[in-house]
Design a protein around this nucleic acid. Structure first.
Lengths: 141, 141
DNA sequence: TCCATTTACTTCGAGTCTCAAAGCAAAAGC
DNA sequence: GCTTTTGCTTTGAGACTCGAAGTAAATGGA
């Protein structure tokens, strides 16, 4: 039972991901970001309440020591700050600085400009969005 | 001009990628592979002629020293072997061993079993495949 | 033919990424 | 109170990635 279409989809979406990473690498370097730090920055939505280390690690599928390292990198560059969660003094929430907000915006802009998906028409995009949303919601996240 | 759907698609496909990586991590470890080595192994199709280091680096969007390192890892585990290209003695082609073929097959099986795309129906899959193929072909690869 | 240039790859050094183990402090549960 | 659990950090080690430099083979003239 070879699932030809499934393998093609997995391969192609991986290819899109790698292509995008490759295309934005130069711009990230100018922002003094790596893929890991850029991804972490993206995962902190300034519209929502600041995530704790634990929550952020969950979003990034990484463990606590790894996230500590990445957040240190972002802190060194002045893009985020740690703050103690008043509700639980063990927990540290990660807050974007003003500069961090601007850089995050720039990361998103560059990515959306460089992703091969940018060449899609509106109907393809909404179809993709609909299917992907369905796929993710079925995973229980 | 905020492209809401585009951002959603980029986010969601990235999420699918990370989720898949996370899910297959344990199985890869049992195969003595990391993401980098598994990806390289996958990129060597035994049905096609063995790729040179240069060609393989292109497929993986990495540079020559990096690929040398990764191929060394695969060689250490007995999954691939280097061979001199008779047509150009500067060039080394990377050939799967018998064990490498079996392990590669296993990597693909595990990935296709764990990817959230596996939950898609045939019509979603073929639609995804069609759109992704179109997206990639428009990038000139 | 000879030699400079280019190409394919490897080695080396340095910085980044990732995780398990161990440690610390605050919270939770007796 | 005291133990356990939880959230995070530090440390140590291995893996990843890249630029710079080096080697060997091919190429392209003179």
């Amino acid at each position: 039972m070879t699932n030809q279409a499934l393998e093609q989809v997995v391969r192609a979406s991986h290819e899109v991901f790698m292509l995008t990473s490759d295309r934005i690498a130069k711009a990230l370097e100018e922002l003094r970001l790596t893929h890991a730090t850029a991804q972490a920055l993206w995962a902190i939505d300034p519209e929502e309440s600041a995530p704790s280390m634990r929550v952020l690690a969950g979003r990034l599928f990484c463990n606590a020591p790894n996230l500590s390292f990445v957040v240190n990198q972002l802190t060194d560059r002045g893009y985020v700050e740690r703050a103690v969660d008043p509700g639980d003094r063990r927990s540290r929430v990660v807050v974007l600085t003003e500069r961090g907000r601007r850089v995050r915006e720039r990361v998103i802009d560059v990515t959306l400009a460089e992703t091969p998906f940018a060449g899609c028409g509106p109907e393809d995009l909404s179809r993709l969005a609909e299917i992907l949303q369905r796929v993710l919601s079925s995973t229980g996240r």
